[in-house]
């Protein structure tokens, strides 16, 4: 009964029309960014550019100082990658120990972590900011990495825990019989096996960290270390209604994440659909 009928074809066409309408803002984004300064003001928003003009992109890429989008991208890469390394390493170690051991403290720790996922972060923001300021960690990439590793740790531990619970202990038993100690077993046997969970952790946590504006604004605002969203906010504020340049900034900020998405869209979608079912 679920064969491809005429009604299915109609449904397919309707869904394509809807999808294209949904992506209309993205089309407007691209065509406007490719227009010259003058055409961006005078022409219709949905009209393609008469001549493709990369002037806006050149100006954005070569911007310097506080407005340097390329420097901000580098900062975003460092902060996101550093946080993911911390989350993968510390999160997997913690999840491994608490899901393989059955003592009271490991169960307690698991619930401690689980509750922290639900606990909204807003209330802790003020004390964290003051603490970071007193320790000289505001406006520093290291401080931001430390903050993110702590903030996203509950999600990482939770994702790894559900993975380890479903992972048979046979490999570790075999390694122990062969004379491997716990450290060797973890790094040689468990670490390679857990790469699907690492992928989910990296995608879910990485996306939240990369796209975050609120925390970056508070902890990095006004400093020389800017992440992409904060730099974009500052830069756009200085470009009053120069929409081709604003959109060039927006597109440049989107390129890394869209490239990743196209490359690993299945993992992204499965990570979202499956990983958050907690």
């Amino acid at each position: 009964m679920f064969r491809y009928t005429k009604a299915t074809a109609v449904r397919e066409v309707i869904m394509w029309i809807i999808a294209l309408l949904m992506l209309l803002p993205m089309y407007i984004l691209v065509v406007t960014a490719l227009k010259s300064d003058e055409e961006a003001i005078t022409s219709s928003a949905i009209a393609p550019p008469t001549a493709i003009d990369f002037g806006a992109f050149v100006e954005v890429i070569t911007s310097t100082g506080r407005n340097s989008i390329m420097l901000a991208m580098l900062n975003s890469v460092i902060i996101t990658a550093g946080s993911i390394v911390g989350l993968v390493l510390l999160g997997s170690l913690c999840a491994y120990v608490i899901s393989r051991r059955t003592r009271t403290w490991s169960t307690f720790t698991f619930y401690l972590v689980l509750i922290a996922i639900v606990l909204p972060a807003q209330l802790g923001t003020v004390p964290l900011y003051i603490g970071a300021r007193n320790l000289g960690l505001t406006g520093s990439a290291f401080g931001m990495i430390l903050l993110w590793t702590g903030m996203m740790m509950p999600l990482a531990v939770f994702l790894y825990s559900s993975f380890f619970r479903g992972l048979s202990t046979e490999y570790e038993e075999a390694a122990t019989i062969d004379g491997a100690g716990p450290t060797k077993t973890f790094f040689r046997i468990v670490l390679p096996l857990m790469s699907p969970a690492t992928g989910t952790v990296a995608i879910l946590c990485g996306l939240i960290i990369w796209n975050d504006f609120f925390n970056s604004l508070i902890f990095l605002g006004g400093s020389n270390v800017q992440t992409l969203p904060v730099a974009m906010y500052t830069y756009v504020g200085s470009l009053i209604s120069a929409w081709n340049k604003i959109f060039a900034v927006v597109i440049i900020s989107m390129i890394p994440i869209l490239a990743f998405y196209m490359f690993a869209q299945k993992q992204f979608i499965q990570g979202y659909a499956g990983g958050l079912k907690g």
Partner: peptide, 21 residues
């Protein structure tokens, strides 16, 4: 089998308690 050392969980627990609780 010794499934890791208990203190492997410590850095993550300290961060969660500090940053969240």
């Amino acid at each position: 089998i010794n499934y890791g050392h208990w203190w492997w969980a410590l850095p993550a627990i300290v961060l969660v308690v500090g940053v969240h609780y």
